[in-house]
Amino acid sequence: MTIAPEQPVRTDAATEATGLPPHARLLLQLARLELDPARLAQVRALAADEHLDWGAFLDAAARHKLLPLVGRHVFTYRIDRAADGQKGFPYGWVFTTAYVGNRHRNLALADEFGRLFGELSQAGIRHAVRKGFSLAETAYGDPAVRKINDLDLLVARDDAPRAHEVLERLGYTQGQLAEDSEQVKPFSRKTQIFWKVNLSNQLPYVKAGHRPDLPEFNVDLCHDIFQKKSGVTAPAADLLVRADPVRLCGASTWVPDPLDRLLDLCSHLHKEATSLRFIEDSVDLQISKFLDIALVAAGFRPAQWEAFRARVGEYGAGSIAYYSLHFTARLYPEAVPTDVLDALRPRDTGYLDQYGTLDGQVGTWALGFLERLFDTGRKAGSGRSNVPHE
């Protein structure tokens, strides 16, 4: 089937979300790389709403990892200044400082991770960068905009021991940063066994950062972009064969090819949106994850969508891909063609409102998707994760 380039016009969530509070509607309008005149007018109108809770807005922007992007918008479009009789954003320095501060933080991360790429390559260990800098320096085009917490690397399982040696040589330990932010505490035996048996990632490698904005460097080695309990597998070794060489963080490395990159982002979003561990930490639903997918998907041409559908079918990952693209299209309808969604849609879509499947504790959300995005109490009553991480 050939996907038609012309797609029906769909409204985005920022237009539909009239029932959400002003701070939520404002963040949805700002959750884009660029603001056209119409959207900028909506931003100014919402910012002037006397009922807008700026504390709630700041909290939501931080929780959804959009604070640096908001800061760039505040500076770029001068929305901290009054215009046309409307007041601008209060405390503009809070937002712009978040943007500038994130740039300095990411530069420090880039220095560290660029060195790691070089050490891995010198040791002959093929690897590919997932998310993080692979998006910040390409899809976003501005490393200061995207909040980066850690480095996620695809590494073949057979190369894990040698990668471990490289990381140890660079000062990393599998564990958690201690309360004094100086030492790294090893994980318990129980946690080590659980992760090895049940999860596709190695336990995190951590090194103290000794900076107020960067208390730790964190590296995750991933051997499959799907979790073991999902029933789907795409081993890192397969993806590394077709990975693309790039320069990131000032060093030579690799990233997954575009089809694998999109599928990886879909898998990552689905895992975190439906797993109790992330629901407990209130990081299950973050607009930034949908924006990641939207920016990658927006660059796909019809032939790439055809190839993507074929790859999804190859791995049997239709329900996972559809979940993530369906909700991404709610926020960024222009990024995912209607025909693609129609082709991927499973017969039973009841799972879209479920969570806890990978935990063996299936529940169903009572709130709709947009309401869930901004419901800070959604974790109450959702159950407890059985994944140890101490």
Rank of each mutant, 00 (worst) to 15 (best):
T2R: 15
E6I: 15
D12S: 14
L30H: 02
L30S: 03
Q42P: 04
L46D: 01
L52N: 01
F57T: 03
K65N: 15
G71Y: 01
Y77E: 12
G85Y: 12
K87H: 11
Y99D: 00
H104S: 14
L107H: 10
A108W: 09
G114M: 06
A123D: 03
A123T: 08
A136Q: 01
A160D: 09
P161V: 05
R162T: 05
E165V: 08
E168P: 05
T173G: 11
D180L: 10
N198M: 12
K207Q: 15
K207F: 09
G209W: 06
D213R: 15
N218W: 11
V219E: 05
D220P: 04
F226S: 00
Q227C: 02
Q227K: 07
K229R: 13
K229N: 13
V241Y: 08
V241C: 07
C249F: 00
V255H: 00
V255I: 13
D257L: 04
D260F: 01
K271G: 10
E272S: 03
F278T: 06
I279V: 14
S288N: 14
S288M: 13
D292F: 03
F300Y: 08
R301S: 12
R311P: 03
V312R: 00
A317S: 07
A317K: 01
S319T: 15
I320C: 05
Y323E: 03
S324P: 05
H326T: 07
H326A: 11
P333Q: 10
E334R: 14
L344Q: 02
R345W: 07
Q354K: 08
V362D: 11
W365F: 15
V387N: 07
P388H: 09
